Computed example of a mutant assay.
Amino acid sequence: MSKVLIIIPAYNEADNIERVVNKIISEYNQYDYVVINDGSKDNTADICRRNGYNLVDLPINQGLAGAFQTGMKYAYKYNYDYAIQYDGDGQHNPEYIADMLEMAESKNLDIVIGSRFVTEKKPKTLRMIGNQLIELCIILASHKKIKDTTSGMRMFNKKMIKRLANYMNYGPEPDTVSYLIKCGAKVGECQVRMNERIAGESYLNTIASIKYMYRMCTSILLVQLFRRKVK
């Protein structure tokens, strides 16, 4: 049976982390997990320590990319077959991990994206317009259609774990997925359902969403164009 690690980056998720981790422990304990506390200013780390959670406690905030790479380094060190990027706010559902794993293994995929839009249509919202623009950029850059470019639920195989753990400039974002496709990574999408955030606030408000969309499109079409391909 494949060793699977759920990587949970957490920044100020005191209102959510207990619910998220307890669900994994109680209902999906066939998978390992690690919480990467990214220098939270609230008591996220205290809650994890009080409950005895598997915790890596970063002393200062590294941002999502730094927390994500810390999780990948952990997965690489302990020789996991697959690692899953998993939000600490309760939006992701662990019930779909088995489907993602089956797809990765049966189709020999390097990355499986938990996608909201394999069989479902995208709603007509400002955020989804941004999603579609990033989708178009990835098509232009890598000739691969990704229907849910901004999904934060992604599974990586051992080959990807090694690369993401040991090299710089591999953030957990659509531009990295686009670059990895150009480098030969095989990517698939598995239909999932995601929840609305129950507590806390997302950093992606309207202005931040527009800035994020601009940054991703620029990176995919321009920055990654000059990046050397590594097979």
Rank of each mutant, 00 (worst) to 15 (best):
S26E: 14
N29T: 05
N54A: 14
N205H: 15
K186L: 10
I210E: 02
Y212R: 09
K107P: 00
I24E: 01
Y76H: 14
V223C: 07
I138R: 04
L222E: 07
L222P: 00
G114P: 02
H143I: 01
N22R: 10
I220Q: 03
G39T: 10
L180R: 15
V35M: 08
F226A: 06
I36M: 07
A165G: 04
S142P: 02
Y11G: 00
I129T: 15
V118D: 02
N131V: 15
I47M: 01
M213Q: 03
K158H: 12
C48L: 00
A199L: 06
N157R: 01
A45G: 00
R127Q: 11
D32W: 06
R193E: 04
Y31R: 08
M128A: 12
N93G: 07
G152M: 08
N61I: 00
A141Y: 14
R19C: 00
A208M: 13
K211V: 02
I84H: 06
I36P: 04
G130P: 12
E196W: 05
I139M: 09
L136Q: 10
V56W: 12
N131C: 14
K3H: 03
A199C: 09
R49C: 00
G200K: 07
P9N: 02
E27G: 02
I113A: 06
L58H: 04
I207M: 11
R227F: 13
D175A: 11
L133V: 13
P9V: 04
Y214F: 11
N166K: 14
D89K: 11
D42Q: 03
R193K: 13
V56A: 10
T44N: 01
Y76C: 03
K186P: 02
A104W: 09
G88Q: 08
I84L: 13
G63E: 08
A14H: 11
T119L: 13
D46S: 08
Q30P: 01
F226Q: 06
Y96Q: 03
F117T: 04
K41C: 05
L126K: 14
N131W: 11
K182Y: 07
Y212A: 06
V112A: 15
K144P: 00
I161E: 01
R116Q: 12
I111H: 06
I207G: 05
Y167K: 08
Y96G: 03
T149Q: 07
M100Q: 06
K107W: 06
I111F: 12
I113Q: 08
Y212E: 02
K231N: 14
K186V: 04
I8W: 09
I220C: 03
Y78L: 09
G52Y: 08
M1T: 10
R19S: 08
S202L: 04
T70W: 05
Y96M: 03
D57P: 01
V187Y: 13
L136I: 12
R116P: 00
Y179M: 09
I60W: 04
K144R: 08
